[in-house]
């Protein structure tokens, strides 16, 4: 089942950065890793998917619905973590989750403890977020993304600032979500992390999709995602697909 279908998505900012003619698909149970340098358009693509930005051109379909028409219905089943999340510092971890959960039509408060346990923050549930480290905030943002038991996860550099334990926890958690049939779109600068987590990768360069491939194929051909990425990004822009 196709969860994400993006066709010729274009979004340009005043500084001419953004994305151009991006087309990708993600099936249920697949993890698509977006690779690319800063400013290559990874976050822009994710923001367009979650309705934070309005595309200039192109089509986005999530769960067969169009975000410009059915965004609330899409977000009922989508977990997002875009850039460094601005959590509510004056609330505890538990209150942050309860508050964000209250936006959903069907919210079972019992899930709060479950997701806190999953991200390893159960012991800190009563602590105010203003006292949290960057890594703890990332964990909490991940817990928020997991609240709706998502069919799609959109995660923008989710392990930034996380310690080794946190990264391992994240990897395990993502595997569980993948096995459950959740589709994931993930961006990261860490090629090694992508190798372990993704089923597919897409390389973005200057807002253009430079290449997309299945991870086993990449590993077979190049040995590592890093070699693949460096090879693809060395290509002349005219060769971009």
């Amino acid at each position: 089942m196709t969860i994400v279908e993006i066709e010729n998505l274009t979004k340009k900012y005043a500084n001419r950065r953004g994305i151009e003619q991006l087309s990708v698909e993600v099936e249920a149970g697949q993890v698509l890793g977006l690779l690319g340098p800063n400013g290559s358009g990874k976050t822009t693509a994710m923001k367009a998917m979650t309705g934070l930005l309005t595309p200039d051109e192109g089509q986005i379909s999530l769960f067969g619905m169009n975000p410009s028409e059915d965004l609330p219905a899409i977000l009922e089943q989508t977990g997002c973590m875009i850039e460094m999340p601005g959590l509510y510092p004056y609330l505890t971890a538990e209150q942050n989750l309860r508050l964000t959960g209250s936006f959903y039509r069907k919210f079972d408060p019992a899930i709060v403890d479950v997701v806190l346990q999953q991200v390893g923050l159960l012991a800190y549930r009563k602590e105010k977020v203003r006292k949290f480290s960057v890594g703890m905030k990332q964990r909490l943002a991940l817990a928020i993304a997991l609240l709706p038991k998502p069919g799609l996860l959109i995660l923008d550099e989710p392990t930034n600032g996380m310690d080794i334990e946190g990264t391992a926890m994240f990897r395990e958690l993502l595997m569980q979500e993948r096995e459950r049939g959740c589709a994931v779109v993930l961006s990261s600068h860490l090629a090694h992390e992508m190798e372990q987590l993704c089923t597919h990768v897409a390389v973005l360069r200057e807002g253009i999709l430079a290449d997309t491939a299945a991870v086993p194929q990449v590993l077979h051909q190049y040995g590592s995602i890093e070699s693949y990425y460096l090879n693809v990004t060395k290509m002349d822009r005219r060769e971009v697909i």
Partner: peptide
């Protein structure tokens, strides 16, 4: 950056 949390919830 807190608005992003609300805007990515299922409300218009």
């Amino acid at each position: 950056g807190e608005l992003k949390i609300s805007l990515t919830r299922p409300v218009s």
